[in-house]
Design a protein around this nucleic acid. Structure first.
Length: 190
DNA sequence: CGAACGATTAGCT
DNA sequence: GCTAATCGTTCGA
């Protein structure tokens, strides 16, 4: 039985790039539903692609709050996307959860997604949001308390990195991280 | 107050 | 590969 190491706010206090890499292989659960994080992206304050780039607004306020909390935003008016707040309070950094390997509550996730193909259940930030029933109400919630649970990776694994997806600024920096060889990535790494 | 624009996805060519 | 769907947020007038 592997020891379950629940990540606490201090575990999210580092650079978003460092946290994004560390989170690969970790387990994310929302009300017991979720799986292994296989893809993340880092965003930071001095980062034109980040929601926090131009300073605090009503939408991104929790990005400037303490680390270890969820920042949820609506994407394209359609999808809910989940981020983990990093750094110290007031900084404005976060990690976008882009894909997980479904492991727990798979049937419930299939119902929510109206889909049977396992590979496409949580392979993308909007898909993760739908499968885990992420909504605005979870924005600002602590990640070490219900309904959230984030458990550190226990198995050794390789992490790959590359440019972030779907952005129009800072497209050159390799701040997207993935579990090497996973078939649950939103897109392959080059 | 109007308008542009997404940290996306599904479906079709 | 290309595009419609869809609407909250942000910014300029």
């Amino acid at each position: 039985m592997p020891r379950l190491n629940l990540l606490k706010p201090k575990d999210f206090a580092g650079d978003s790039h460092e946290v994004a890499r560390t989170l690969i292989g970790a387990t994310l659960l929302v009300d017991g539903v979720g799986g292994r994080i296989v893809e993340t992206e880092a965003y930071d304050r001095e980062d034109p692609a980040s929601h926090s780039f131009s300073g605090p607004t009503p939408r991104n306020a929790v990005m400037f709050g303490p680390p270890g909390h969820a920042y949820v935003y609506r994407s394209y008016g359609i999808h809910w996307c989940l981020n983990f707040v990093c750094r110290e309070e007031g900084h404005g950094a976060g990690v976008l959860i882009r894909a997980i390997e479904p492991l727990h509550g798979i049937e419930l996730m299939r119902e929510r997604r109206g889909l049977h193909e396992l590979r496409l259940l949580c392979s993308g930030p909007g898909r993760v949001g739908e499968a885990l029933a992420i909504t605005r109400e979870l924005s600002g919630a602590r990640l070490d308390r219900p309904p959230f649970k984030v458990l550190a990776a226990t198995e050794p694994h390789d992490v790959v990195r590359g440019p972030r997806i779907g952005i129009s600024k800072a497209m050159d920096v390799p701040w997207r991280f993935g579990l090497a060889g996973s078939r649950f990535l939103s897109r392959a790494f080059r």
